[in-house]
């Protein structure tokens, strides 16, 4: 888009003795939310630590917000926020006091730090409990406090390392929505890691897949989950109705298979691919069978599929 990348790495390599945490990583990260996906030990945390200037790479170089990691680590750390994966909160301090202190450690004055801490804690959704010692917090509250300290100084980029770790499904959804807001509404670039592909699919504009320290793929989320040409159909009723529809569609020359409560229709043969011919056919078949159509949507690939494909390729 013509704008300089937020993060740019070239041949970045980190070896610990015989362990190869990162190998020849060359990738650009732009504005918005970028997901960094990989299994545990794929090199996600190592990459973040190198970008923060806390670890020295074995080879290659990188720049963050236009600053070189080797020489301008301090300048980078002034402009970025970091939410580590593991617990890092002192139990005997309140979230309010802690976030104020952390904002001051990033160079905000006393009154600015207090104001920002109050703002940020409100945004992450810590209310009255912000005045209680953090030792008594639930995992969800701890994750929010960790996120608040990362945002306290209004960074231009935040590294969020596994922010949904240990959260229940509702809290996970909340956290993901927050991550999305940080990237869009707050206007802060986000690099968020996860070992769960599905959740990053929901919030990321761009996804980078790491596998064993190697770059597997880097592209816009849309490209990952592009339309396969297939369709998903769901009808009112149970599996019996689903199977009746599937069999009837198969007789009309479509390749179908059950997927959950739905029928997945493979990309249609050329004679049906024109315009909305397949859609009309499915509608008519359902009407003939007297089945109520509930859903008819394009079948998109999921990040998992890409990851599996890539994994076998590599």
């Amino acid at each position: 888009m013509g704008r300089p990348p937020v993060i740019s790495t070239a041949g970045l390599t980190k070896h610990y003795g015989t362990v190869h945490a990162l190998t020849d990583l060359t990738v650009d990260v732009g504005a918005g939310v970028t997901g960094l996906v990989g299994a545990n030990g794929a090199g996600k945390s190592t990459l973040i630590k190198i970008l923060l200037g806390l670890l020295e790479p074995t080879g290659g170089n990188a720049s963050v917000l236009g600053h070189d990691i080797e020489h301008e680590g301090q300048e980078i750390r002034r402009l970025v926020g970091y939410m580590p994966e593991h617990d890092c909160l002192p139990p005997d301090v309140s979230a309010s006091d802690f976030v104020v202190h952390m904002a001051r450690m990033s160079g905000l004055g006393a009154s600015a730090a207090r104001e920002r801490a109050a703002d940020v804690l409100r945004h992450v959704g810590l209310d009255e409990e912000r005045y209680r010692p953090m030792g008594g917090y639930s995992t969800g509250m701890k994750q929010r406090a960790k996120l608040a300290q990362a945002l306290a100084h209004d960074p231009r980029l935040v590294f969020l390392d596994e922010p949904t770790n240990g959260l229940d499904p509702a809290a996970r959804t909340d956290m993901l929505r927050l991550v999305e807001r940080i990237g869009s509404e707050f206007g802060i670039a986000v690099l968020v890691t996860s070992h769960l592909l599905g959740e990053l699919e929901q919030v990321s504009d761009h996804v980078i897949v790491l596998d064993g320290g190697h770059l597997l793929r880097s592209s816009a989320t849309g490209e990952f989950t592009q339309h396969t040409g297939g369709l998903l159909v769901e009808v009112v009723g149970t599996e019996t109705e689903r199977d009746r529809l599937g069999e009837a569609l198969a007789q009309r020359g479509l390749t179908c298979r059950p997927r959950g409560a739905m029928v997945a229709v493979d990309p249609p043969p050329p004679d049906l691919a024109e315009g909305a011919a397949v859609h009309d056919l499915i509608r008519d078949v359902a009407a003939d069978l007297g089945l109520g159509l509930m859903r008819l949507q394009p079948d998109r690939r999921h990040l998992e599929d890409v990851f599996l494909e890539g994994g076998t390729r590599a």
Binding site: R77, Y82, P90, Q149
Partner: peptide
């Protein structure tokens, strides 16, 4: 408590 990580992710070395 590992809060050192948060300090070191900030300007002071």
């Amino acid at each position: 408590h590992r809060s050192i990580v948060l300090y070191l992710a900030r300007p002071l070395s």
